[in-house]
Simulated scan of single mutants.
Amino acid sequence: MEDQGIIRLYLQRSQQAIVETKNKYGAYCRVIARNILPSNPDIEECENDTYLAAWNAIPPNLPEKLPVFLGRITRNIALDKHSYNTAKKRSREFEVILTELEECIAGPATVETEYEAGETAGLINQFLYGLDEQNRNLFIRRYWYADSIKELSREFKMSSSKVKSILFRLRNKLRSHLKQEGVDL
């Protein structure tokens, strides 16, 4: 079924919308969750929570790109679940990804910094649009979809050390770009 048909089902409040969403995007949502969460029950819970969140969000929201909309919901739910799971214990795989970006981006800690966080997001987008397609895809796959170095090496047909080196250089470029634009790191 086409995405517009699925969205129409959501607007009609038909439960078939969830079935069609699962059929078309279930594997996609599970991959995103699996890159962040280690356990199958958590991944399943995250996938199901994504369908519920989509049900509650459509309407009033009408997503232009359904897979991006679902991916964002899945990622946010998985990150929340990861935070909950690791509140007292650290050193899981996803922690490595977060620490890689730690030097470049400080998380918003107060209400006053929410505006700056939005501005920083715009600057990051500007930085990403300035990259060639391969580097942009590597960066996004690592830091948005949380793909492992091994997966990226296989997907981009590069050695692990080359992927690590490219990501290191990209993080340094991002840091320089943000400093140049006046972002305090």
Rank of each mutant, 00 (worst) to 15 (best):
M1K: 08
E2C: 05
D3F: 10
D3H: 06
Q4D: 11
G5F: 05
G5Q: 08
I6P: 08
L9F: 13
Y10L: 07
Y10K: 05
L11G: 07
R13A: 08
S14V: 06
Q15L: 15
Q15V: 06
Q16S: 11
A17V: 04
I18K: 14
I18D: 03
I18S: 15
V19Y: 00
T21E: 02
Y25P: 01
C29A: 10
R30L: 04
R30T: 00
V31S: 12
V31I: 07
I32F: 01
I32A: 08
I32R: 02
I32M: 02
I36R: 01
I36V: 12
L37A: 03
I43Q: 05
E44Q: 13
E45K: 04
E45R: 06
C46H: 04
E47D: 00
N48G: 02
T50Q: 07
A53W: 03
A53T: 13
W55C: 06
A57I: 00
P59Q: 07
P59R: 02
P60R: 05
N61I: 09
L62Q: 09
L62A: 06
E64Y: 07
E64F: 02
K65S: 04
K65V: 05
L66W: 04
P67T: 03
T74V: 01
T74H: 01
T74F: 11
R75W: 00
N76I: 01
N76L: 05
I77V: 07
I77Q: 05
A78T: 03
A78R: 02
L79H: 08
L79V: 08
D80Y: 11
H82N: 11
H82F: 15
Y84P: 00
K88F: 14
K88L: 11
K89H: 15
R92A: 04
R92W: 15
F94I: 09
E95H: 14
V96H: 14
L98K: 15
L98I: 14
T99L: 12
E102Y: 14
E103S: 11
A109V: 01
V111I: 09
V111Q: 14
E112H: 11
E114V: 14
E116I: 03
A117N: 14
A117V: 02
E119K: 12
A121L: 13
N125V: 06
F127V: 02
L128D: 09
Y129T: 04
Y129V: 06
G130W: 08
L131S: 06
E133C: 10
E133L: 15
Q134F: 06
N137A: 11
N137G: 01
I140P: 00
R141Y: 12
R141V: 00
R142M: 07
R142N: 04
Y145Q: 07
A146G: 06
D147C: 04
I149R: 08
K150E: 14
E151Q: 13
L152Y: 15
R154T: 13
S159A: 09
S161V: 10
K162G: 02
V163A: 08
K164T: 09
K164Q: 15
S165G: 07
L167Q: 10
F168S: 13
F168L: 13
R169F: 14
L170N: 03
N172P: 01
K173W: 04
K173N: 11
L174Y: 12
L174D: 06
R175N: 10
R175M: 04
L178H: 09
E181H: 08
G182F: 13
V183Y: 12
V183W: 09
D184R: 02
D184S: 10
D184G: 04
